[in-house]
Design a binder for these strands. Structure first.
Length: 913
RNA sequence: GCAGGGGUUGCCGAGUGGUCAAAGGCGCCAGGUUCAGGGCCUGGUCGGUUAGUCCGUUCGAGUGUUCGAAUCACUUCCCCUGCACCA
């Protein structure tokens, strides 16, 4: 069995026959399948293979069911990662080049040539396409495109024009992580160490300086605005530089470093420096209590965090208490704002004393702070102010809102996990974009339509439906443009690019015309053109070139099944629903079904570059063969859970295929011979499976399918081999090969041909279950033989000798009648009465009654004595061979041993001598 | 913190009121195989017991509902994922 030869042969034949190039075929029932298109910044690994293999199995199943199926593929290159990677290659970044060489096996000379984004895209997309062809995905490659293709750009621009028309596109302010040197937004892959910047809203409260010549405020940053009632003083760091600056017409005092970082979002106008000593002489008015409080010095205050000025709430902030204590003021009045069970009026003081924290520089102060903050946030109750009696966590928001409403506070956005550095070396700050475009997924009618669509959709696995619903509710405004990246220019501001998740929500519509549209000059693909093709309206509906495209779109749409990994529910898949219901008013064009799957683990752990345990798909195919890999990446677990790929699984699949391969070859000689009992058993089992498999396929219960039509089948075949003298399996394989073809298309094509069939198995009809071949008594008989076989093994083990002679006694039919009677009368007294009424031999009945009644609800429904005798007689030769002894099968009515009478239905008496 | 998912016998992983000492795979043990090894086949793999049996204990921990719970409810501990501009 040469996997590579078979795979090459059949992928060539499919390509030559253009087997999977699908065009509209009016009159035929269609199914349109898509899977999330790949992002070509690395080769695909076996994990990517799971989604596509699932989609391919489904497509192939639907073809067997007689549907006209389209399964296209394209490449998503939108956004910044490819740009960033190309740049890093150009800069000879050792991390990137190291991963290329070690994990992807790309030689350094080759890697060096990939410093241009387009070269990178071309290299990896080519690699991915080859892999997809090698593994046998039934894709219509004519429809391939890249998301930076000019025609596709025009399509996406059309989409955004429609969104604007619908009022879903809005403009507003938006905070983002920003590199002041590059003048660009930064995300994880732009930072040193791939840190994902976390933005955090922080409240800034203004404390007016009392008695100042002109109005001026100290601005303090706080995460706990509710504690403003308990402020005893303000902290500044005497080592830091402070400035006076104008902010929205008011003068504020802020640290120099803070002003630098916050300038972009606050628009500060610097007036001049102010010495820390001068600030320390001031008194500041608490905007909530109107109390004037002094300003003190504290080393723990950092000029770089927030505004560089902090309010002091010693009752609730350990650091504030410690700093006061360090100044010798540990016993001043500390107003309590929040009550906390288990603590006194000053929880911060309590914990500092309990933990024995030395001073404000003691690292233990951090732990104390964390504990008090967490506890007060969740268990604390307000004891002061307007919201007394409410939970601290609720009061926090209300108090901040109140302060802002009265102009006593404003918000800033900071980096919660800073400091972060751009790859260029500069300090990442927060910028507020003034003219950011958003898609407003918060529009109620839009949400309602999305929910309506969801309700009408089939969701596999079913238990993820709630997650979609949650996501639909959770979506609000979503930024849809970025300053840089590959992809499509934003039509209403060409200096911006459409963001990567926003340009991949309705591209499935584009596939339906992707190859035809190439014949039309890009410049003619204007709004009216796409209106005509996808909405059937506007001036160009009569355009001759539109007609064909419109027809194709209407033939294939809607998408019958969309496939992706489950992590995309929170963004892509829900955006897919939103944009479809938004752009396409006709409900018949809305998505029908979404299928999501879990990840593939490698030997039990997540694949990652840092662990170096990524198995590239093409490497895996080379090692195991395409069909084995296809099977191994999908069969290990339910669709929704992660599945583990490891060598022993793949080896197991491979060795089972080797057995099947041999049997197929052998069966070719055996055509036309009559079927014995064991063939009838096998065919009975198979026909039962065919019936179940049809349902399992349509539900994509892949794990169950794998057990049912592969693992169980190979174990049946192993039993068959033991029981049968010469393989006679042609009829079996005729059906089974079709049944499993979606999983193992290459081998199955080969076997299909070997078995003398014409055409591709890929388009053969799904086998029909032959109910006449399903035979309970044969199957039960075979089970009995297996059981007897095992029992002989056990008994001879227990008595410690090899059998010379085995005699098997089959229970009389009256015992079977008794079993049935017991099932009808599961209580001992009624059972005995019923038995007496039916004139059973009551002495024999009472001997059996105890055993029967104990297991009355698990009692087998026995087959007849004759059926048991037939089965065991058929197996007598086999059993004799197995144990190299003589085997005799007798009814219990012909006893040669007293044990004969202990025979029970489904449990013959066995005498070993 | 909030939201979602989960803890099953050596491991992975089925099982969602009785038919469950609990599928299947892997690992391990014993035996077999014109078997070098690997492979393949049969049996075993919670404890005890036995001519193929029967008994006891188990499904993160605890409490409860029930004639009956791995399965339902409550409490508790632990783990994983997501929390937005990132594809």
């Amino acid at each position: 069995m040469d996997a590579t030869a078979i795979e090459t042969k059949w992928s060539r034949r499919w390509a030559e026959a253009r087997a999977f190039e699908s065009d509209p075929a009016p009159g035929k029932e269609k199914r349109y399948i898509t899977a999330a298109f790949p992002y070509p910044n690395s080769p695909q690994h076996i994990g990517h293979g799971r989604t596509y293999t699932t989609a391919d199995i489904y497509s192939r199943y639907l073809r067997l069911k007689g549907y006209h199926v389209l399964f296209p593929m394209a490449f998503h290159v939108t956004g910044t990662p490819i740009l960033a990677m190309a740049k890093r290659i150009a800069g000879k970044d050792p991390d990137v080049l190291g991963v290329f060489e070690r994990i992807y096996g790309i030689p350094p000379e080759k890697a060096a040539t990939l410093s241009e984004p387009r070269a990178l895209v071309s290299y990896f997309s080519d690699e991915i396409e080859r892999g997809m062809k090698e593994i046998g995905y039934s894709i219509d490659w004519r429809r391939k495109f890249y998301s930076y293709d000019e025609r596709f750009n025009r399509f996406i621009q059309w989409q955004f024009r429609k969104l604007k028309e619908l009022g879903y596109l809005i403009k507003g302010e938006y905070p983002i992580a920003w590199c002041p040197a590059d003048k660009n937004a930064v995300s994880a892959h732009d930072t040193r160490g791939d840190v994902d910047p976390e933005l955090e809203d922080v409240t800034v409260i203004k404390f007016a300086v009392s008695g100042a010549e002109e109005p001026v405020s100290l601005v303090v940053t706080t995460y706990r605005p509710e504690t403003v009632y308990g402020v005893t003083n303000i902290w500044v760091n005497p080592e830091a530089k402070y400035l006076r600056a104008k902010h929205k017409g008011e003068v504020i005092i802020i640290s120099e470093k803070a002003a630098e970082v916050l300038n972009l979002q606050l628009g500060l106008e610097i007036i001049g420096e102010i010495k820390a000593e001068d600030i320390l002489k001031m008194k500041a008015v608490n905007p909530m209590t109107n109390e004037a409080v002094p300003v003190y010095r504290a080393g723990f205050v950092s000029a770089e965090i927030g505004t560089g000025i902090v309010m002091s709430v010693p009752a609730h902030a350990p650091l504030d208490y410690l700093a006061l204590r360090d100044l010798g003021m540990g016993s001043i009045r500390m107003p309590q704002v929040v009550s906390l069970k288990g603590y006194g009026a000053a929880p911060a003081k309590d914990i500092v004393e309990k933990m024995g924290v030395k001073d404000q520089l003691d690292p233990a102060s951090e732990k104390a702070t964390e504990e008090i903050y967490t506890k007060e946030a969740h268990e604390g109750v307000m004891v002061l102010g307007k919201y007394a009696g409410q939970k601290a966590i609720d009061a926090k928001v209300k108090i901040a809102d109140d302060l802002r409403a009265h102009g006593k506070a404003f918000n800033i956005v900071t980096l919660g996990n800073g400091p972060i550095f751009c790859r260029c070396g500069s300090h990442v700050v927060v910028n507020i974009l003034k003219d950011q475009w958003f898609i407003d997924y918060g529009v109620p009618e839009w949400k309602a339509k999305a929910k309506e669509c969801l309700e009408g959709m089939k969701i596999i696995p079913a238990d993820t439906r709630g997650e979609y619903l949650y996501t639909i509710d959770w979506f609000k405004t979503r930024p849809s443009t970025r300053a840089a990246g590959l992809g499509t220019k934003f039509p209403f501001d060409e200096s911006k690019m459409i963001e990567a998740l926003s340009d991949s929500t309705i591209y499935m519509a584009y596939y339906t015309v992707a190859h035809q549209i190439k014949e039309i000059p890009a410049t003619e693909l204007d709004e009216a053109f796409f209106d005509a093709v996808f909405l059937g309206k506007g001036p160009k509906v009569t355009d001759a070139r539109v007609g064909k495209l419109r027809e194709s779109f209407l033939f294939w749409y809607p998408v019958d099944s969309r496939h992706s990994a489950g992590d995309l529910i929170r963004n892509h898949l829900t955006l897919y629903i939103f944009n479809h219901v938004g752009i396409f008013p006709e409900k018949k064009l809305w998505p029908k079904q979404i299928v999501t799957n879990g990840f593939v683990l490698m030997d039990g752990s997540k694949m990652s570059k840092s662990m170096g345990n990524i198995l590239p798909l093409r490497k895996a195919i080379k090692e195991y063969g395409a069909d084995v890999i296809r099977f191994s990446v999908v069969c290990g677990a339910d669709l929704s859970s992660d599945t583990d790929f490891n060598r022993s699984v793949a080896d197991g699949v491979r060795s089972r295929m080797a057995l099947i391969d041999k049997l197929v070859q052998d069966s070719l000689q055996a055509g036309g011979k009559p079927h014995g009992r064991i063939e009838r058993w096998l065919l009975s089992r198979l026909n039962r499976k065919i019936e179940r498999a049809d349902k399992l396929y349509s539900e994509l219960a892949i794990r169950d399918l794998a057990l049912e039509i592969f693992y169980e089948v190979t174990s049946d075949l192993q039993w068959y081999l033991k029981r049968s003298s010469e393989p006679n399996l042609k009829d079996f394989f005729e059906k089974w090969v079709v049944l499993i073809a979606p999983f193992m298309p290459h081998y199955c094509e080969e076997y299909w041909e070997l078995l003398g069939n014409k055409g591709f198995v890929s388009f053969a009809p799904f086998p029909k279950p032959d109910h006449a071949k399903i035979d309970d008594s044969i199957e039960r008989g075979e089970e009995l033989i297996r059981k007897v076989h095992g029992d002989i093994e056990k008994i001879s083990g227990l008595i410690g000798k090899q059998p010379q002679k085995v005699t098997i006694y089959v229970a009389s039919d009256w015992k079977r009648d008794l079993y049935n009677l017991a099932k009808e009368n599961p209580k001992i007294d009624t059972f005995m009465k019923a038995a007496a009424a039916k004139k059973f031999d009551m002495k024999a009945v009472s001997a059996l009654s105890k055993g029967i009644m104990k297991n009355v609800h698990s009692l087998p429904t026995p087959i007849t004595q004759k059926d048991e005798l037939d089965a065991l007689n058929d197996a007598a030769g086999f059993l004799a061979k197995e144990y190299s002894c003589t085997v005799e099968v007798l009814p219990e009515e012909q006893p040669k041993h007293e044990k004969a009478k202990s025979a029970l239905p489904d449990k013959p008496a066995i005498v070993i001598e």
